[in-house]
Simulated scan of single mutants.
Amino acid sequence: MGNPAQLNLSTSCPPAASPVSGWAARRELKLARKALALAGDPGLVLDLPCGTGRFWPLLAGKPSRVVIAADDSLDALERALGAHGGEVLARVRPLHTELARIELSDNAVDSIFCMDGLQQLEDPARRLALLREFYRVSRDTLIVALWREPPHKAAAARLRGEAEAQFRQAGFKIEARLDLLALWSMARVYLLRKP
Rank of each mutant, 00 (worst) to 15 (best):
G61Y: 02
K30P: 01
Q166W: 08
D72Y: 03
A176T: 03
Y135H: 14
R160W: 14
N8D: 07
A187G: 06
A129D: 00
L159K: 10
R93Y: 02
K62Y: 14
I174H: 06
R126L: 08
L99P: 03
L192K: 04
I68D: 00
L130D: 08
S10D: 07
K30G: 01
L77E: 06
A24F: 09
R160K: 15
E162K: 15
C50G: 12
A165C: 09
R54P: 01
S18F: 09
P15Q: 13
R132P: 04
R168N: 05
V144P: 14
G22I: 01
W56F: 02
P15T: 11
A5E: 08
K153I: 05
A83Q: 14
L48P: 06
R168S: 10
L59T: 08
G53E: 08
C114A: 14
L46W: 04
P150D: 04
A37N: 02
V20S: 06
C13K: 10
W23A: 14
R188S: 05
R127V: 02
K153W: 08
S111I: 03
D47A: 11
I112N: 02
A35P: 00
P15I: 09
G43N: 09
D116H: 07
R26V: 00
V144T: 15
S21A: 08
F55K: 06
L9S: 10
C50W: 10
A170H: 03
K153T: 04
T97K: 02
Q120G: 06
F55Q: 05
E28W: 04
L159A: 09
G51M: 14
P151Y: 10
S185H: 10
S105Q: 02
W147T: 04
E133I: 03
L180A: 04
A156D: 10
V20P: 00
G53T: 07
E175H: 14
R136L: 08
G61E: 03
W184F: 02
L183T: 11
L9Y: 10
E98V: 00
